[in-house]
Design a protein around this nucleic acid. Structure first.
Length: 730
DNA sequence: TAATCCTTTCTTTTT
DNA sequence: GAAAGGATTA
């Protein structure tokens, strides 16, 4: 009858009905959080007779925003295209588009992602003579965005310098901001902090939005950073109809500046109504017990415990393998054997770092099991894609030095380091765009020795497309561009992968076509901005459209659920990650990450670890994750892939023994000798490799050995890693 | 200036 | 084992 209120449990309904005034919904994993937000949105529309544009709902991923919108449409039958269901960042872009010019920012701007920001920081460091070996550009860039997101200007930060590092950061921060403005670029932090600046500076703008959005909702509130929280406070400061939904147990983005204390601050500052959602609709009882055992060790967390009406379910499998390879092999064979009961789409493999995906990928390939790896930013990080995007960015923003640098000699125009420096120098006044410089090269005496025909031609192409960019569809824009610069012939002859690279460019064109169809009337500018704000979480499809096993990091797993889950590589150093060991707060975050992974599982959960793993091509011994000790035995079924008893052999000797067994297996076995120098082997030698097993030397060059492995095919081994190889002396 | 070859470093997670 | 940086040679 009432499809908005009927499907809700008492607590959920309470949260939906409490519309006016500050509300904190503490929503445990799998407790119907999204349902509360969407139903609340729908309820507000119906009860308060509001336009969809009068409610703001903020999320962190485009995917979450898209799904919410769709759900609201289903619930209300209303057109929600004007509804403000967006990510913080895309909301920021809209505000900047509309108001940036009013306070002296440019209308045509580009967005720098983290890679761009890091690159800018790096070049600033080089210019100002700061050693990039002593100070890591990535951590400096990260530090700068933390400072920006805590709303401190370079001048503010200078006042609280505490170390030599801070001093450098302050210096770089200042130049970095100048460079961003000169390039007419905004970084990710700017997308939040500059709208705040606009709100504070121009009260009219702020009150416009305050009266536009009668109600404000924030999803995943534990993930907000200071700037994001500030923005919500500003927008809601008049009516205070702010509803935040979150879970302190699922706070895993502290390293990105998120602070779950915002939950407690919100509760106290606004004296908010608090509603606790503790009924879980996802997991078996055993899985919830295990999850709770892991997370309850965190001091100071809000005390809550998920419960379910479901049965206990199967015990959690705890798998102990010899090597990471064996671990992956077991996981995939287990998937294979469960395929009688489950579909591909029901399985997920989670790990701490993207690099861990490789072994699982190899095993899945062997068994012909369809899979997809999420994350890793692969496609847009490719050279050929970045080249084209840099061209587009430069056309949109002819002041963008980063894009200019990238493309000025792509395809080759005989511009090297020296020529580039000259060109950049001319642009450094911040008033001359790179297109203008190109069009007028021959008039500038300092550029007299440059190959000006090619440069002028480039200038003309860019200028023409710039004039046309609002008249062309994104696809025709890109096609004209690629054609005009002769990119196809350049890239196909670039290296031996030229044809593959070109097919990636074709794939890019396809994706632009798709974008065009999904967003009628959108321009190339919109496309570039949107894909910059796209995250790996956005790619993950709804389960009914999947037909593959999903592989992803634990971070990417948040918000998802799968009937059968594998959490792999549960060893000390990976989870908790070695880089977290200096701070108790970081280790707690690792623990929550584990918790997030566990609570994704609906029916069967596997936890696996191995005694050893390959790192940088070298064998590394490791201990099980200390978090495993917190799981009560009664919920666990152990699968020990070793035949021997642990107390008889130490684990290192077990590895040795397994290797010996494998080696015994080599045909025509002779004495084994560790390879110390490349001259110890010759083509045709039988070898044993610690990772890849048996093989035959196929080719030798000065510093590399190609080995044809029985199980892995041909692989090139660097001369640095010869110690992993043993040769059979004949 | 550009291509090639070799050496070094690096890995945490990402809007 | 990849990617980026550096040195060397054409």
């Amino acid at each position: 009858m009432d499809r908005i209120l009927e499907p809700l449990n008492d607590k959920q309904r309470e949260a939906v009905l409490f519309t006016d005034g500050p509300l904190l919904v503490l929503a445990g994993a799998g407790s119907g959080k999204t349902r509360v937000i969407t139903h609340r949105f729908a309820y507000l529309l119906r009860e308060k007779r509001l336009q969809p544009s009068n409610i703001l709902a903020v999320t962190f991923t485009n995917k979450a925003a898209g799904e919410m919108k769709e759900r609201i449409t289903q619930l209300t039958g209303l057109d929600t295209s004007t509804a403000w269901v967006r990510t913080f960042h895309s909301m920021g872009v809209l505000i900047l588009r509309k108001h940036a010019e009013e306070i002296g920012y440019p209308r045509d701007f580009v967005i720098y992602d983290d890679t761009d920001s890091r690159g800018l920081v790096k070049s600033i460091m080089k210019e100002s003579g700061i050693n990039t070996d002593v100070y890591n550009p990535s951590s400096i860039a990260e530090k700068i965005s933390r400072i920006k997101e805590s709303l401190q200007s370079p001048e503010d930060f200078v006042k609280q310098i505490e170390s030599e590092m801070d001093e450098k950061v302050a210096l770089i921060y200042q130049s970095y901001e100048k460079a961003l403005r000169r390039n007419r670029a905004f970084d990710f932090s700017d997308l939040i902090t500059i709208p705040i600046y606009i709100f504070k500076k121009n009260n009219k703008v702020l009150s416009y939005y305050q009266s536009l959005w009668h109600y404000v909702m924030v999803d995943e509130f534990q993930d907000t950073n200071k700037a994001q929280y500030e923005m919500i406070k500003l927008i809601g400061s008049v009516h205070k109809n702010i509803c935040v939904v979150g879970d302190d147990d699922q706070s895993i983005y502290g390293w990105r500046g998120a602070n779950y204390d915002h939950i407690y601050d919100f509760r106290d500052r606004y004296n908010a109504k608090v509603i606790l959602l503790e009924q879980n609709y996802r997991s078996s009882r055993v899985i919830l017990e295990v999850a709770h055992a892991v997370v309850e060790k965190i001091p100071g967390r809000m005390d809550k415990k998920l419960w379910t009406q479901e049965s206990s379910g199967e015990k959690v499998f705890l798998i102990n393998a010899l090597t990471d390879k064996e671990e992956a092999n077991y996981v995939v064979s287990r998937i294979d054997s469960l395929l009688e009961e489950y579909d591909y789409k029901d399985f997920a493999i989670f790990y701490r770092t993207n690099a861990q995906s490789r072994l699982f990928e190899e095993e899945l390939l062997v068994r012909n099991i369809p899979y997809r790896i999420f994350g890793g930013q692969k496609f847009y990080a490719r050279k050929e894609i970045k080249d084209i995007l840099a061209y587009i960015k430069l056309i949109i923003d002819p002041f963008d030095s980063a894009s200019f640098e990238r493309i000025i000699n792509v395809p080759k125009r005989k511009i090297g380091e020296v020529a580039l420096e000259k060109l950049k120098k001319v642009a450094s006044d911040g008033k001359t765009s790179f297109i203008d410089i190109l069009l007028n090269v021959e008039k500038n005496p300092s550029l007299s020795r440059l190959p000006f025909e090619a440069l002028k031609e480039l200038g003309r192409i860019l200028e023409e497309l710039r004039e046309e960019k609002e008249k062309l569809t994104p696809m025709s824009f890109v096609k004209i561009l690629i054609d005009a610069i002769g990119y196809k012939s350049y890239i196909t002859s670039f290296d031996e992968d030229g044809l593959d690279r070109w097919s990636n460019v074709e794939e890019l064109i396809n994706s632009i076509k798709e974008y065009e169809d999904d967003n009628p009337g959108a321009l190339i500018t919109d496309y570039v901005n949107d894909i910059t704000l796209q995250s790996s979480a956005d790619e993950i499809e709804a389960d009914d459209s999947r037909n593959y096993v999903s592989l992803m990091t634990l971070h990417n797993a948040k918000g998802l659920e799968f009937p059968v889950v594998f959490i792999c590589g549960l060893v000390d150093g990976l989870l908790p990650h070695a880089s977290s060991l200096y701070s108790a707060r970081d280790i707690e975050e690792e623990r929550r990450l584990f918790y997030v992974g566990i609570t994704r599982a609906m029916k069967i959960l596997h936890l696996s670890y191995s005694e050893s793993r390959m790192k940088y091509g070298e064998l590394l011994y490791q201990n099980p994750s200390p978090f495993l000790n917190d799981i009560p035995e009664e919920f666990v079924e152990e699968v020990d892939l070793f035949k021997e008893k642990k107390d008889i052999f130490g684990w290192q000797s077990k590895i040795r023994k397994k290797e010996e067994e494998d080696i015994d297996d080599i045909e025509g076995n002779g004495e084994l000798k560790i390879v110390e120098d490349i001259s110890d082997i010759k083509v045709g030698d039988k070898v044993y490799h610690h990772l890849f097993g048996k093989g035959k030397v196929a080719a030798i060059t000065k510093n590399f050995v190609t080995i044809d492995f029985k199980d892995y095919g041909k692989k090139v081994i660097s001369g640095n890693f010869l110690s992993n190889i043993e040769v059979v002396s004949s």
